[in-house]
Design a protein around this nucleic acid. Structure first.
Length: 454
RNA sequence: GUGGAUGUAGUUCAGUUGGUUAGAGCGCUGGAUUGUGGUUCCAGAGGUCGCCGGUUCGAACCCGGUCUUCCACCCCA
C-alpha cells in the first residue's frame, strides 16, 4: 500500500516544542494578569448544540460554523421531501452539534445553565480553541485560541475600566506596542437616529468601519448601496470629519447628537470611562475611534479593540459590552462585558518583531554528560538531588560521543553541562562547563547546587 | 462564499524557448578532534519537482482538475 502523505486540515497547524514554549509564554502571561484581577477559570466543551450557536453571529457567522455530522445512520430520519436538497436545511437535520465559534456565546449558555452555582458579578476567564470555517490567510486560522475575560452581572463602567487596565498590563508584559481603540454602540445608534435611519445601524456601522480603507466617498457609496438615502448620508459628514483628541471629539459629538437620547448616553459612558484614566496611569494609548464597529451584533455599549502598532495585522484583541446575551437562553436583564485576546495573532506579531524573551526557549538548566554505566550510576543520585532542588536537569540517555552530547546541549540551549568521568569521580569533583562563555572549571557538587539555586 | 497568485531536498530558494544524470546556501550524518558544543576545513546522505490526468518522441517547465499556502474582497482573534 502506498504511504499516505501526512497532512493536517486547511487552516490548522501542528506546534513544535519551540513554538509551544513561546505560545505558553503568551498564555501564562495572559493568565497571570487575569488572575491578578480576580477572574476565575472555566472550560466548556469543544462542541455545542448547533441550536446554541446558530443565529448568534449574524448571517455570515452561521456560514462559518463547523457542523458535526450525527453518529449512526444520519440519513434515516431526514425529511425525504428534501429531494431537491437544500444543503442548509439538510445540515440542520443531520448535524445537531457544531464546533464553538467563540467563547462568549458558550459562556452565556454556561451562565444560564449554572445560574444557581454562580455568585454575581461573575468574573471568569477562559482560554480554549475556537473554530471558524473561514478561508485561511495570514493571521487567520480555522482553529485558533481565544483568551476571554468577561464579567457578567454588573452594569458598572468600572468593569470597562478594569478590562482596559488588563489589556494595558498584558501588552506591556508582552512588550507589544499597541493602541487601544474605544467606541460605544450607543453613539453609533445615536448617529443612525440623527441621520434618520435608525433601522440601518448595522449597515451604517459596517460602512463607517471601512472609512480608513475606502475613504469617505467609498463609505457614502456603500451606504447608498445598502439603501440609506443620500440625504441621510450627507448628514454623516461632520461625524466622519471629527478630529482632535478624545475630549475634543466628545464635545463635538455632544453638539451633533444633542437630540439623540441614546447618543448622549453613549457619550456619557465613554466620558465616564475616560475620566477614570485622568488619575490612573495607562502606558497604552487610548483612542476614541468612531469607525470601530465590530461585526458582532450583540454589543450594546462599549466596543474595544487593540491593534499592534509596529506590524501589519488585524486586531489582536477585541470585545465590548453586551446587555442581553443571556436573553436567548432565558435569562433577562443580565449585562456583561468582556474582551478576547487572539493568542495566535499575538504570536505572529511577536514572532515578526522578534520580541520573545530569549531565555524562555531554554527549559533544561543542566545536562549530565553520559560517559558510561559506571559514571551514570555515580551521576543519577546527584541528578535526583538537583531535581529535588527544582533545578531542571537531565542526563544524556546514551553513552554517545561527546561531540553528539555537546551538540544536543547546544541545540537545546542548555546553559550548563556537567562532565563527570573517571578523573572527577576520583577527586570527588564535577567539571562544569558554561555553554555561553565556554569556560569550565572543577567544583564541588554542594557548591554548584548553591550557585544554581541563586 | 467571490477573484488572483503559489507549490522543486529537512528548510530557504535557483533551474535558460520543453531536451541526457534537477542544483546552491543553511541544516543533517561522518571525519579532521575516542573528554568538549557554538567558529573552521573535508567528505557524504537526502528529491514521485504538491497530487491526478492530458498534450508531446520527450514535461519541474505547456494544458485541465484537485489540494496546500498566500493576497484582495467578505468578515474577523
Amino acid at each position: 500500500m502506498a504511504a499516505q502523505k501526512p497532512s493536517v486540515p486547511k487552516g490548522t497547524r501542528d506546534f513544535s516544542p519551540i513554538e509551544m514554549v513561546k505560545r505558553n509564554f503568551i498564555f501564562d502571561t495572559i493568565k497571570d494578569v487575569f488572575k491578578r484581577y480576580g477572574y476565575l477559570p472555566i472550560e466548556t466543551p469543544s462542541m455545542e448544540n448547533l441550536s446554541t450557536l446558530l443565529g448568534k453571529y449574524g448571517e455570515e457567522g452561521d456560514k462559518l460554523l463547523f457542523k458535526i455530522l450525527n453518529s449512526g445512520d444520519y440519513l434515516e430520519k431526514v425529511d425525504k421531501s428534501l429531494s431537491n436538497i437544500d444543503s442548509n436545511k439538510l445540515a440542520l437535520q443531520i448535524c445537531e452539534k457544531g464546533l464553538r465559534y467563540d467563547l462568549t456565546v458558550p459562556f452565556a449558555r454556561f451562565v444560564v445553565q449554572h445560574l444557581n452555582e454562580i455568585t454575581f458579578p461573575f468574573k471568569r476567564y477562559q482560554i480554549q480553541p475556537v473554530w471558524r470555517a473561514d478561508r485561511p490567510q495570514k493571521g487567520r486560522y480555522r482553529e485558533f485560541y481565544q483568551c476571554d475575560v468577561d464579567v457578567i452581572g454588573s452594569n458598572s463602567l468600572l468593569n470597562e475600566v478594569e478590562l482596559i487596565q488588563i489589556m494595558d498590563d498584558i501588552f506591556q508584559k508582552l512588550n507589544i506596542n499597541t493602541v487601544i481603540k474605544f467606541n460605544n454602540r450607543k453613539i453609533l445608534a445615536g448617529i443612525s437616529e440623527i441621520i434618520g435611519a435608525p433601522d440601518k445601524i448595522i449597515d451604517i456601522t459596517i460602512a463607517i468601519d471601512k472609512l480608513e480603507k475606502i475613504g469617505k466617498k467609498g463609505v457614502y457609496d456603500e451606504l447608498i448601496g445598502r439603501g440609506v438615502s443620500s440625504g441621510s448620508v450627507s448628514l454623516l459628514d461632520p461625524i466622519l470629519e471629527l478630529a482632535g483628541d478624545n475630549f475634543a471629539k466628545l464635545s463635538s459629538l455632544k453638539e451633533i447628537l444633542k437630540n439623540s437620547e441614546i447618543g448622549i448616553k453613549g457619550i456619557t459612558e465613554v466620558e465616564t470611562v475616560l475620566n477614570y484614566f485622568n488619575t490612573l496611569t495607562l502606558k497604552t494609548e487610548l483612542e476614541i475611534d468612531l469607525t470601530l464597529a465590530r461585526g458582532l451584533n450583540y454589543y450594546t455599549g462599549a466596543i474595544i479593540e487593540v491593534k499592534a502598532k509596529d506590524v501589519e495585522m488585524g486586531s489582536i484583541c477585541g470585545g465590548g459590552r453586551y446587555d442581553d446575551l443571556t436573553g436567548v437562553f432565558g435569562l433577562k436583564d443580565v449585562s456583561g462585558v468582556g474582551v478576547s485576546f487572539g493568542a495566535d495573532r499575538i504570536y505572529d506579531v511577536m514572532q515578526q518583531l522578534d520580541i520573545f524573551p530569549k531565555e524562555i526557549v531554554s527549559s533544561t538548566k543542566v545536562l549530565f554528560v553520559n560517559f558510561g554505566e559506571k559514571e551514570v550510576r555515580y551521576c543519577l543520585p546527584l541528578l535526583k538531588v538537583m531535581r529535588d532542588n527544582n533545578i531542571n536537569s537531565e542526563i544524556y540517555p546514551d553513552s554517545a560521543k561527546m561531540n553528539k552530547q555537546m551538540t544536543y546541549a547546544n541545540n537545546k540551549n542548555i546553559p550548563f553541562v556537567l562532565l563527570v568521568g573517571e578523573n572527577e569521580m576520583q577527586k570527588g569533583l564535577l567539571t562544569v562547563k558554561n555553554m555561553v562563555s565556554g569556560e569550565q572549571s572543577e567544583i564541588k557538587f554542594d557548591e554548584l547546587l548553591q550557585r544554581l539555586n541563586k
